[in-house]
């Protein structure tokens, strides 16, 4: 997987560094899945786990959704003049 990562980015024009970083940023938002699993398995009475897990889900989603939307907005601007 490390090699795939390196292969994937091998030759990228500097123009795309920012969107690429932003896109990768959104992808590591997969941590949210871990947060969801925590939430799903937490016992009803374990408030600490529930609250922390809830926070983790919110933050993770923020990362995912925000990341993809920002990237899309950046790329939208590249598209327009074509």
């Amino acid at each position: 997987m490390i090699f795939v990562g390196i292969e994937v980015i091998g030759r990228v024009p500097s123009v795309l560094h920012t969107p690429l970083m932003s896109g990768a940023n959104a992808i590591h938002g997969v941590v949210v899945i871990g947060a969801i699993i925590i939430m799903g398995q937490a016992e009803e009475s374990n408030y600490l786990a529930l609250i922390l897990g809830f926070l983790a889900v919110v933050l993770g989603t923020l990362n995912v959704v925000g990341g993809f939307v920002v990237t899309d907005r950046m790329l939208e601007m590249f598209k327009k003049k074509k």
């Binding site: 997987m1 490390i2 090699f3 795939v4 990562g5 390196i6 994937v8 980015i9 091998g10 990228v12 560094h17 690429l20 970083m21 990768a24 940023n25 992808i27 590591h28 997969v30 941590v31 899945i33 871990g34 699993i37």
Partner: peptide, 21 residues
């Protein structure tokens, strides 16, 4: 931690790609 393939893939992918970037 969760033996979760997609987190593993996504994470390592970004880790490697991010470092290269």
């Amino acid at each position: 931690l969760y033996d979760n393939k997609v987190m593993l893939t996504g994470g390592i992918l970004v880790g490697a790609a991010g470092t290269l970037l």
